[in-house]
Design a protein around this nucleic acid. Structure first.
Lengths: 379, 379
DNA sequence: AACGCTTGCGCAAGCGTTTACGCGGGGTCA
DNA sequence: TGACCCCGCGTAAACGCTTGCGCAAGCGTT
């Protein structure tokens, strides 16, 4: 493989000059520049970024560690990250922590050893090891989707605080309020027994969605029945079990809220298996919209997260931090959209076209288009 | 950041010894080993793979360039690749060529500049630039999903042949026969006008599925009507247009085959928009199964590709090539499964459980469980 | 004519590893 | 006791790039 020295020799200049031509880091006479450029493509020279990174101490690449890549939600995030990164001239290193604390730490190490400039991570439910590793090695990181306990409550945070380093940046979607809204909607339709299939315990998203669920019940003046709140472990199989349990109750729920799309899938499977019709026999609303949601029958009423933007925001946060390491850390929360369809029990709109569908939700109080909240949480 | 020199100093040994301890590349006395290891985690030392790669000339990372990451099919591939790579101790660099020939070439360059050991690419419809780049720079590559013209017909191939380098390895799913099978199934149900929404012209997958479609028609003794074969450009919007065109025909098809899942989506949208009921008004079969396909109503009869295995096979092929650069190139074709559900017009099974559904397809001639064909295509 | 300034470039010291050599000391064998 | 070997380790030269420093030539001043 041709190196810079080869190019230099072939162009009759020094390697320094070649470097400067290629990077535009200092003026070079037109003649020399031509000679170099010609040599470059005569030899088919490709710069070796490894060597470059070794001296500059930056790789212009970021690591992405998210579990369950197959989830359309994460996929959209991935897309957002990919485009934003590429746009900024950054490469993307991917790794799957498999939602396991140890694996997660290993994956962070792998990425760090490859000297990514920063990391974007959707942490697991027990991220202590991870946070510990990241703060010990001062790896610039933004947490995605799931929030980490604020500084002062965890080991890693303490370590970070001790070194005076800012805590991590974070970005996620608003979860509580939209979930409450789903519950309110169902309650408004007359439902009194509304079940929730929640996610993995320990995740901030789970906590917030449960909170939203309870808030929604309270706001509607409904009593909370413990037996109606089950964990579906954030995945399809768990949701199947939870749904089956709910249906076996002596007084099963008349409406169901599912807390992410994998669990929606599981719940729907079980409902079908029991020969129940949605929304006639049981209404369903889900957190997490997805591309197929409008093709089910009934079409699924859902909360749509700004998944793609979550990804781009994460990248932006990271790049900001890289540019200015000392800045106070930020937590960005993006608003969700209520996508009103028919699985909640509301009648199909007159014109079942996409356009009509979008405006349908305006019958309900609109989420104000305020800019996403950004609050500094410098420790 | 601590370097090997720091560790060496702290342990009172030379950097060479540290290196050998860390890599196990030569025997070291237990005492020294301990000292080094202790120093390592006292300092929180993390090896710099950049420096290592610079001297070893391998990065232990592979590049993955696939478009449309959001497609569940590619997502499954991605998962396969990720796990297989990690298992072999390889990192994964991701880039999206956006199905564009130029972008594709750029992405390959980006990955190559980062010195990935090899590349896995799902090439676009016009991969000449890409192939050219790859063979000029001798980047070990396996093509995924879409096949490249065999050597002797293209520029890149010619270049490769000229340098005596083997042509690229490839892996894809069987396309023609399963598509024919879909058509045969529909014809068997009495359909005489069967439409095909095909993919992007130029893709091998498109070619093969069209071939399969025509074969299926011929085998059923049906005449081929040009107007029933439209391109949906491999994506949802294109399929919507194509479907609308089909429905506007004076004698529209009574059955539809869609050639990938994005197009299935588009087609279904349009059918719904036109108030058509599947399969009563029109039957639908699709190439490309996906996780939600059994929750639609009707449940979609589809060809399931072994997507995940496609990914793992690609990695295996690549690693084999890296281990033995001179080996003749191989093309691996994996068989698909016919998943029989109800959108074709067949009645729902007695027990609509998962188990019953799986066995349902055994009513039809089974695809023999022969090992995937691997034929050498050394140029 | 001497001076300084600008312009255009080369020299060489790293960046953090791996690895071919080589060297001293202790054991084994004749 | 000397020859030999092996064991355990250090020395130093790469790997391919960036970048601070400095030099020579050409120009416009006084």
């Amino acid at each position: 493989m041709a190196t810079m020295a080869d190019v230099a020799r072939s162009a009759g200049v020094s390697v320094a000059t070649v470097s400067h031509v290629l990077n535009g880091t200092r003026p070079v006479s037109p003649g020399t520049r031509r000679a170099v450029l010609d040599a470059v493509d005569a030899l088919g020279y490709t710069p070796n970024t490894l060597a470059r990174s070794l001296v500059t101490a930056r790789t212009r690449s970021i690591g992405l560690a998210v579990s369950a890549i197959s989830n359309p939600y994460f996929t959209a995030i991935l897309q957002g990250v990919e485009t934003a990164a590429l746009e900024a001239g950054y490469g993307l290193l991917l790794a799957d922590p498999h939602d396991d604390p140890l694996h997660e730490r290993e994956v962070a190490r792998l990425l760090h050893e490859r000297r990514v400039d920063g990391l974007i991570v959707a942490p697991s439910a027990r991220p202590d090891e991870l946070v510990d590793y990241l703060s010990r090695h001062a790896v610039p990181t933004v947490f995605l989707d799931r929030l980490i306990d604020p500084p002062g409550s965890g080991d890693g945070a303490a370590a970070a605080a001790a070194t005076g380093a800012p805590f991590f940046d974070q970005v996620c979607a608003e979860s509580a309020e939209p979930t409450a809204r789903l519950v309110a909607h169902l309650a408004g339709l007359g439902h009194r027994r509304i079940g929730l299939i929640a996610g993995l315990p320990g995740l901030s998203t789970t906590r917030e969605r449960v909170t939203g669920y309870l808030d929604g019940l309270a706001a509607a003046g409904l009593a909370h029945d413990d037996r109606l709140l089950l964990s579906g472990s954030s995945e399809s199989a768990g949701a199947e079990r939870a749904t089956a349990t709910l249906l076996a109750l002596s007084d099963p729920p008349t409406a169901l809220v599912t807390a992410n799309n994998a669990m929606t899938l599981g719940a729907l499977r079980v409902l079908r298996r029991h020969g129940l019709s949605v929304p006639r026999d049981i209404a369903v609303c889900c957190f997490d919209d997805f591309p197929w949601a409008d093709l089910f029958s009934p079409r699924l009423t859902a909360i749509a997260q700004p998944s793609r933007e979550l990804g781009t925001r994460a990248v932006r946060l990271l790049l900001d931090r890289l540019a200015e390491p000392g800045r106070p850390s930020r937590t960005v929360r993006l608003p969700c959209a209520f996508v009103h369809r028919t699985s909640c029990g509301c009648p199909e709109e007159a014109t079942p076209s996409e356009a009509a569908e979008r405006t349908a939700s305006s019958a309900l109080p609109k989420i104000p288009p305020e800019p996403p909240s950004e609050k500094g949480t410098a420790s």
